[in-house]
Amino acid sequence: MKIVTWNCNGKFHKLFNEIMKEKADIYVIQECGNPLESKNEEYKEFASNHFWVGVDKSKGLGIFARDNVDMELVDLEDNGLRYFIPVRVNNSFNLLGIWTNPNKKNKTPEYPKEITRYYELHKDSGFFNEDMIICGDFNCDARLKHVHARNVFEMKEKLGEMGLVDTYHYLSNEEQGEESQATFYMYRHLDKPFHLDHVYAAPDRIKELEIGEEEKWLQFSDHLPMIFEI
């Protein structure tokens, strides 16, 4: 099964055809509009099998799947944490889509904390387990330092309790904050790279993980997609 996670930076109703070229089974998309509120009939057709939550009708988190993929929304309270979509896929594994977007004045340190809080809230529910996949725009990069960096390592430790690792770092043998490949370029400038997007899974569950090419994807968004198979 092929999965793509991508922060599309808005206007997904005009961009979904680009990400569809990856021919994935599941797309976890951040900053996308609500298909049910869209006037684009082709976007609605693409989103025939989806779940969505968001800030408003034009910006949110969505999980979109092929029609032959069975997705069941898991009933987990978010307690105001933003944004998480927990689903059961093909009655085989759990998938948690993430777009951290905390509603707080001091946002930078809070991004990884949102994930830690969600984990603590549901770690005993049975949803979190070593067979699950977590992916999305975490807005987390240890090179931001100070409290944010400490919260990144806390998040990593907490998810590690379930046997989950950051797949990029596991495959590349790179440390948090020392990534050689970026997933985000501030203002789309190549001299402002960050590694904000992440995929967590059990070691060896994902054999390869690809980050999209800057030349192709920066014309659409300030984020690059992460593409992997399980």
Rank of each mutant, 00 (worst) to 15 (best):
M1N: 03
M1C: 03
M1Q: 04
V4K: 12
G10V: 09
F12E: 05
E18D: 11
I19P: 07
I19S: 05
A24H: 09
D25E: 06
I29S: 04
Q30R: 09
P35G: 09
E37L: 05
E41I: 15
E42N: 04
Y43P: 03
K44P: 03
K44T: 05
F46M: 06
K57F: 14
G60Y: 05
G62Q: 10
A65L: 13
R66E: 14
E72V: 11
L73K: 04
G80A: 10
Y83H: 09
F84C: 09
P86A: 00
V87W: 05
N90Q: 13
N94A: 04
N101C: 13
N103I: 09
T108Y: 07
E110V: 10
Y111M: 06
Y111A: 02
P112I: 00
E114G: 01
E120V: 12
L121C: 02
L121W: 04
H122G: 04
K123L: 02
F127P: 05
F128W: 12
D131H: 04
D131F: 00
I133S: 00
G136E: 01
G136R: 02
D137F: 06
C140E: 05
D141I: 02
L144V: 12
K145T: 13
A149C: 02
R150N: 13
R150F: 11
F153A: 11
E154D: 13
E161D: 08
E161I: 07
V165P: 14
Y168C: 01
Y168T: 02
Y170G: 03
L171M: 07
S172R: 09
N173E: 07
E174T: 08
E174M: 09
E174K: 03
E175S: 14
E179G: 04
A182I: 10
F184T: 01
Y185H: 15
M186L: 15
M186C: 13
R188W: 12
K192E: 09
D197F: 07
V199C: 00
A201K: 00
R205C: 04
K207W: 02
E208A: 10
E210W: 10
I211C: 03
G212E: 07
E214I: 14
E215D: 15
F220L: 15
S221C: 13
D222T: 12
L224Y: 06
P225D: 08
P225A: 10
I227Q: 03
F228G: 04
F228A: 04
E229Y: 06
